[in-house]
Computed example of a mutant assay.
Amino acid sequence: MPILSIVIPVKDEQDNVLPLLDEIHQAMRNQIDYEVVFVDDGSTDLTYARLAERRGVGDLRLCLIKNRQSLGQSTAIYLGVQAARGRLIATLDGDGQNDPADIHSLLALTTGYGSQEDFLIAGYRKHRRDSAWKKLQSLVANGIRTRLLGDNTPDTGCGLKLFPRHSFLKLPYFDHMHRFLPALFRRLGGDIQICVVNHRARLAGISKYNMLNRAWVGLIDMLGVMWLQRRNRLPKSATEVTVEKPII
């Protein structure tokens, strides 16, 4: 059984998935027991076919999930985590802009946590390889999110994150939840750590996101997360709960 499952949602990334997969294998080889879970979210190109061909020639670390129609990035991640076998989950974007070698930096910050503790290691793209307009959008969005949700995370949009599988499956599921993982983990009483990671230019294809398809739905979702925070009654830590188990 792998210790780490690397979950990657993809849609129409036929020219990026195999180079990314090769990079992952190169970065993780002889370092940790791992698997790679690609979730094809309704691609209309050869994304799934190329991954299936690689699996067919003997990539035994590769798990494939295919959605017949696009269900969104959050659902793709959720399905990938459900299918994953690793105790720890790392998520990556499928466009190759995240560096798989940075997973080791995130893993290094997990030492000291117990097997049942809840925590999130969030990547921070301090030096982003995006247009000035896209960086401005993210700066504004992160500022508003931090002010309203108090997640104190400088880059919630970074796809590179690491967390225990059992912690993620405790979270309330809803569409676009992946944008609010730090706030949801804090609501759970989990610990949050920030790790500066590399960011690279996209090799091929185009981004699926823009200001118009993110702003309005993002505001509605943020109000929903604020409602969840206000209704939270969970203890902040396990030490606040006393459990007396039966002797027999």
Rank of each mutant, 00 (worst) to 15 (best):
T153H: 08
P164H: 02
T111H: 05
L79R: 15
D99M: 10
L109C: 06
L148C: 05
R165P: 09
V196M: 12
D102E: 08
N16R: 04
G189F: 05
N198T: 11
V17T: 05
I65K: 03
R87V: 00
Q14L: 01
R230H: 01
L120T: 04
F168N: 11
Q14N: 00
G190F: 02
D99G: 10
L71E: 12
H104P: 09
N210K: 00
K208T: 03
E117L: 06
R29F: 07
A108C: 10
N16P: 01
R202C: 14
S207F: 04
H199W: 09
P2N: 03
E35N: 04
R54D: 02
D191H: 14
Q229A: 03
L79A: 14
V225W: 04
D151H: 09
V81P: 01
V17K: 07
Y209S: 15
L234Q: 13
R50V: 07
H178K: 03
K66Q: 12
L62H: 05
M222A: 07
I6G: 04
I24R: 03
T239K: 10
L60P: 10
M177T: 04
W227Y: 10
R55P: 08
D155R: 01
L107W: 04
G114V: 06
C195Y: 06
R125K: 00
L169I: 02
N213H: 01
I194L: 15
V140L: 10
S167Q: 00
T110V: 00
S70I: 11
T91W: 07
D118L: 10
K11M: 11
G150S: 08
G224C: 11
D191K: 09
Y113S: 06
V7T: 09
I8T: 06
G190M: 05
F168S: 00
L139N: 12
L136M: 13
S115I: 15
S115N: 14
N142H: 11
K134L: 13
S207L: 10
L71K: 12
R147C: 01
G218T: 11
G86A: 01
A84M: 09
I194R: 01
Q137Y: 04
Y209Q: 12
G224P: 04
I77C: 08
N98L: 09
A76E: 05
F185I: 02
L62Y: 09
R165D: 04
H104S: 13
Y124E: 11
N98Y: 06
G56H: 00
S167A: 15
L92M: 13
G143Y: 03
L234C: 10
L171C: 02
D155M: 00
N198Q: 13
R165W: 09
G96L: 10
R179V: 12
L46W: 01
D15G: 08
R187M: 06
G159E: 00
L149G: 07
Q97R: 15
I220G: 05
T242D: 14
L171S: 09
S115E: 15
G94H: 02
A84L: 08
Q229R: 12
R29H: 08
L62P: 07
E35I: 02
D99I: 05
I6M: 05
W227S: 07
I77K: 13
P154M: 11
N30Y: 03
R214G: 06
N213K: 00
W133M: 13
G80S: 13
L106N: 03
A83F: 02
V7Y: 01
M1V: 07
N152R: 14
D33G: 10
I6Q: 00
K11H: 03
R55E: 13
P164E: 07
